[in-house]
Computed example of a mutant assay.
Amino acid sequence: MAARYWLAQLVRAVIAFAAGFAITLDQDHTAGYGIAMFAAFAIVGGLAVAGFFFVTDAGDRALWLVQGLLGVAAGVVALIVHSGGLGALLYGVSVWALLTGVAELYGGWRARRARGSDTGSASAARDRLAVGGLTVALAIVYLVIPAEHRLAVGLFGAYAIVIGVYLAIGALSLKWARPAETADETTESHA
C-alpha cells in the first residue's frame, strides 16, 4: 500500500494547500466565505479520500470510504446551511473535524498495529495518526474559541496549510524511501 499511498497523501496535500492559500490570500474572512471554503475543502477532500481504491485491506478501504463520505456529507450540509452564519461554520467544522479526525486516528492505529515493522506502512500509519490528531485538535479549538468570524476562518486556513505541509512531507518521504528500501531488500536477497 505504501508504494501508492504517497500519491494519495500528495493529492490530499494539494487540496489542503488550495483551501489554505485561498483563505490566506483573500481578505474576505466572513462566515459565509469560511463556510464556502470549508464546503469545497470537505467535498473535494472527501471525494479524494473515498476514491482510495488501491487500498487492499477491506477494513482500511471501509474506513477511507466512511471518512470520505463524512467529508462529502459535511460539505453538502455546509452548502445547505450557508446562510447560517458563524454558528453554522463553528458547528459544521467542529462536527466534521471530530468525526473525520477520530476515523483517521482509528485508521492509523489499526494500520500501525497490523503492519508493525514495514517502514513504509509504519510511516503512513504515523502520518494518519498525526493528521487525525491535528484534526481532532481543530474540533476542540473550534469549540473553545471566541465566536469571531475572522478568527474562525483564519484558523481553518492555518489548519489547512499545516495539514498540507505535513501531508506533502509525508508523501515525498514515502516516495523517496521506497527506492532505498527496495534496493536494500535486493542487496539482502543477493547476499
Score class of each variant (00 low, 15 high):
143 L>S: 13
117 S>E: 11
144 V>H: 03
19 A>I: 08
54 F>H: 11
86 L>N: 00
151 L>T: 14
146 P>Y: 00
134 L>K: 04
160 A>T: 06
19 A>S: 13
174 L>Q: 09
57 D>N: 15
6 W>H: 12
176 W>F: 15
28 D>M: 11
184 D>M: 12
114 A>P: 07
121 S>T: 00
111 A>C: 10
63 L>H: 06
183 A>Q: 14
137 A>H: 04
3 A>Q: 10
167 L>R: 09
157 G>T: 04
26 D>V: 07
151 L>I: 13
185 E>T: 07
42 A>D: 04
75 G>D: 02
13 A>Q: 08
62 A>N: 11
66 V>T: 11
46 G>M: 01
177 A>Q: 14
58 A>F: 09
176 W>S: 12
61 R>L: 10
38 F>H: 07
104 E>N: 00
73 A>G: 00
151 L>V: 14
103 A>Y: 03
54 F>W: 00
182 T>Q: 15
158 A>V: 13
94 S>V: 03
83 S>W: 06
4 R>W: 07
136 V>H: 00
176 W>Y: 15
149 H>R: 11
40 A>F: 09
142 Y>G: 06
161 I>K: 13
109 W>K: 13
37 M>S: 08
154 G>W: 03
172 L>P: 02
190 H>V: 08
116 G>E: 14
92 G>Q: 03
152 A>T: 02
172 L>Y: 14
112 R>C: 03
23 I>Q: 01
187 T>E: 15
54 F>E: 12
131 V>P: 08
101 G>I: 07
6 W>L: 05
39 A>D: 01
21 F>T: 15
29 H>W: 12
70 L>E: 00
155 L>D: 00
180 A>T: 11
132 G>N: 04
173 S>I: 15
115 R>T: 06
167 L>D: 08
46 G>I: 02
66 V>S: 06
149 H>I: 03
